[in-house]
């Protein structure tokens, strides 16, 4: 169980949200919904440990992530709204780098196949479309079993067939007792709960 208690996030001079609580439980996706600027991306970056909360704490079964940040980043995969794809490398080289950086194997054919990228494995990624690059970024989810997936608009620029591939991957992850926190406007047909976020325009 991954939870946030009484979180306050301040970016620059602006309070993005204040007093926010959430609980992400195994097998149920936590879907963040809210207008632009409500802090969905900020909450995901906070959960990844890329941002620090001004107040409040994030906990794994009651233990704060600040006690062991390395263990926390080892058990999550963060998919931001940028694709982290190097145009000069092929799809396979891009994915193999992230796999080996995380201590995984250099062979990433299975992960590429799981998002339908098999035929594009040896194409330079600067020739790929936005949706294909997005799928390459999502393929990192299939590299290693990580407990927590943090997904920022994972289905942007995906076609219907790719959304279905991704949803199948996410369902399998939830079925295996994984956790998902996702900001999305698309109904993914996952077992999930919605966390409604309001926009907060007050100054700090």
């Amino acid at each position: 169980m991954f939870a946030g208690n009484d979180l306050t996030c301040i970016r620059g001079e602006r309070v993005v949200f204040r007093g926010l609580d959430f609980v992400a439980a195994p097998g149920v996706a936590l879907v963040l919904q809210g207008p632009n600027g409500a802090g969905k991306s900020s909450l995901l970056r906070l959960a990844a440990g890329l941002l620090t909360a001004a107040e409040g704490a994030l906990t794994w079964n009651g233990t704060a992530i600040t006690q062991d940040p390395d263990a926390h980043s080892a058990c999550l995969v963060y998919v931001g709204h940028l694709d982290a794809v190097k145009p000069a490398l092929t799809a396979r080289e891009n994915l193999a780098f992230w796999s080996r950086l995380g201590g995984g194997p250099a062979e990433v054919g299975g992960a590429l196949e799981s998002l339908g990228l098999g035929p594009l494995a040896d194409v330079r990624t600067r020739l790929l479309s936005a949706g294909e690059r997005r799928r390459l970024n999502l393929a990192r989810l299939a590299l290693r079993p990580a407990k927590l997936w943090l997904l920022d608009e994972p289905t942007v620029s995906l076609d219907a067939a790719s959304v279905a591939l991704f949803a199948a991957l996410a369902r399998a992850h939830l079925g295996a007792g994984g956790l998902i926190i996702a900001a999305t406007h698309v109904a993914l047909d996952l077992p999930g709960r919605v966390l409604a976020m309001r926009s907060n325009a007050r100054a700090a």
């Binding site: 890329l50 992230w98 995380g102």
Partner: peptide, 17 residues
């Protein structure tokens, strides 16, 4: 710069290093 702009830097910051 390139790693910052394409989001790789976020992932490098989360790497086991």
């Amino acid at each position: 710069q390139a790693d910052y702009e394409d989001g790789s830097l976020d992932l490098l910051a989360l790497a086991p290093l």
